[in-house]
């Protein structure tokens, strides 16, 4: 899923400083699951902003709504009748949600309340980790289901580099321990007796399918509606 984090409160407050009527829009999907922009977080943020702007002597009307998915037109249509009433929309969706609102409601002014962090998962309660870099060319079959593109600091295809120590990446600090993805890969494959996979030289990667090839688009004719 997409993992996001709420921006610092002061930054959000500054972003809405010039508006009088603000609609805080949450999203019921990924950012709800990662406790960053669901109905609950929208409620807490909206009331905090109401209080803070009142204390500052500049009270604002701050309303709230959470749509099931900010990234689909049909769910955004549920707010189309009211969005025009506001001079600012504060989206608590991921970067896709913010852009979907801006695209679907060209008249609306929208600001982001979250920082979209990565594609990952909750490894334990309250802890999320990156797992996928969306490189567009999956090789997880070669690496025991552990992604070196997303999880090696150098995205090496033939690791581990000389900085791997005790299962930790060389960039680890006492405050930030980073697992060496290649240590995990090597240990897993060797335990399975699949050393041959590790001995094969993985050639230079084709990054065209990744962000390096420009903005990506998938068009499937089998799913498209016939044009009138």
């Amino acid at each position: 899923m997409i993992v996001a984090e709420q921006k610092p409160f002061e930054e959000i407050k500054a972003k809405i400083a010039k508006a009088n009527k603000v609609l805080v829009v949450g999203c019921g999907t990924c950012v709800t699951v990662c406790f960053a922009g669901g109905e609950k977080e929208v409620g807490i943020l909206a009331s905090s902003l109401r209080m803070a702007t009142k204390i500052d002597g500049n009270p604002k009307q701050i309303d709230e709504v959470t749509v099931q998915r900010q990234c689909e037109w049909e769910y955004l249509d549920t707010i189309k009748d009211r969005i025009g009433e506001y001079d600012l929309v504060l989206s608590l969706g991921c970067g896709i949600g913010v852009q979907a609102i801006a695209e679907h409601f060209p008249e609306a002014r929208v600001v982001p309340g979250l920082n979209t962090s990565f594609l990952g998962l909750p490894v334990e309660q309250g802890v999320w980790e990156e797992r996928c870099a969306a490189c567009g060319n999956c090789i997880l079959d070669l690496t025991g289901g552990i992604c070196p593109i997303a999880r090696c600091s150098k995205s090496l295809l033939n690791g581990p580099c000389g900085g791997s120590h005790d299962g930790k990446c060389e960039i680890s600090t006492p405050d930030r321990v980073v697992e060496c993805a290649w240590d995990l890969i090597v240990k897993k494959l060797m335990a399975r007796g699949e050393l041959d996979k590790l001995l094969e030289i993985q050639p230079a990667k084709n990054w065209q399918t990744s962000r390096d090839g420009g903005p990506r688009r998938i068009a499937r004719e089998d799913l498209m509606l016939a044009k009138e």
């Binding site: 995205s155 033939n158 690791g159 993985q202």
Partner: peptide
């Protein structure tokens, strides 16, 4: 960058 790694 790491377009290549040392092996490639």
């Amino acid at each position: 960058v790491y377009d290549l790694d040392s092996m490639s």
